[in-house]
Design a protein around this nucleic acid. Sequence first.
DNA 1: GCATATTTGTCCGTATGTATA
DNA 2: CTATACATACGGACAAATATG
Lengths: 228, 228
Amino acid sequence: MGGAEEAAERLVRDRVLLGRTSTAERVAAILRDHITEGMFTPGTRLSEESIGEALGVSRNTLREAFRLLSHERLLVHELNRGVFVRRLTADDVVDLYRVRRLVECAAIRTAAPPSAEALAVLREAVQAAERAAAERRWPEVGTANMRFHHAIVELAGSSRLDEMMGRLLAELRLSFLAMNNPRAFHEPYIGRNRDILKLLEAGDADGAERLLAAYLADAERQLVQAHL
Amino acid sequence: MGGAEEAAERLVRDRVLLGRTSTAERVAAILRDHITEGMFTPGTRLSEESIGEALGVSRNTLREAFRLLSHERLLVHELNRGVFVRRLTADDVVDLYRVRRLVECAAIRTAAPPSAEALAVLREAVQAAERAAAERRWPEVGTANMRFHHAIVELAGSSRLDEMMGRLLAELRLSFLAMNNPRAFHEPYIGRNRDILKLLEAGDADGAERLLAAYLADAERQLVQAHL
DNA sequence: GCATATTTGTCCGTATGTATA
DNA sequence: CTATACATACGGACAAATATG
């Protein structure tokens, strides 16, 4: 058997290993979706017994999933009291936007000018937001807007930064749940994202960065207001 | 009972809750130290049975700790094969330095000019590195240098960014283990950190950022070389 | 303030599936 | 191909802490 064939077999095996996931990770993925979509409201305690029974997994497995989500700040673990869906404070919102401002602005500057593929991804995100708005699906508008900003971070070309931004946006989603009028909150930002995109397409990274900073400052202000 | 007293009691309770930690977290902390200090070399498999026995904890508890450390990228979890100490590739090093460059440079720019307290922390880190070098304790030189760069990120004033940088530096430490001559690797950077500090003290954030970028580029080059 | 019920924290035993010598 | 070792996942047990009446 040739070395190339061995290597190919090895790759196939690795690929299979990558694709499979443990029960704890699948459970964590399910709970993550539920939390970020607001099906468990912040502050709710997640009982080991009831959740475990509902999902058909043992308490041990469920606890592993809880650890993962606590590490992502979606849950808070209070010793001997259980895990609760994270409730963001105004300080949390301020901190989250501090990170967003630093990372997103730096990503735009670092990657100027953006590649054609990167611009296509950004364009697609804006269009998705516009489609969702046309169908009055406001939560999806929020999702698409977040994808736009995730794509901005992807300009930096770092998988670690991408992952970190993904977690940060999931956490931020907890604060969106506190906005009682999703349309009023999300709709205005669609056009502002399109404006940022226009400047990037025109090669004006500085201008895009300025618009982005203003965007983030406004969103932060609105969210902080809702978390006082 | 007055509201102030209630609040005080609540604080005491929270403090107690904060101070206590579960066995899984304590185990994770111990393993984290062992890994970053190189007591388990990258690639080593950490057997549930033997580690659990050595630490006197059950496999269930140990698995919770493993989940945490896998989430921090210090361990890699291969389904049905166990957990292994992460082995960094050259690509990992490149990615880590991409993040460092973006975040550290942005932190310097964002926080210019630094506060007197922030400068004091930076100065202390440089001095610690110089003391360690005088005593020829090269690994500690590396630790102090990393504290310097962590302090640079702290200029941004975000607890989330601080935590993220802490994890990133812990991961980076895995790559330091591959350098067979710690003195040759760490010593030259002490003076370069001092140079960066000097410019910050002089209020020259742009100059500091340039030196920092060059510092990171050189370190990256050396580490990539060692990981080919 | 106390007694009780509930829930978490931790450990153990075990059946099953997977990987590897 | 088989045998062995190991990870996966479950369920049960009990102590300890917490919530409740």
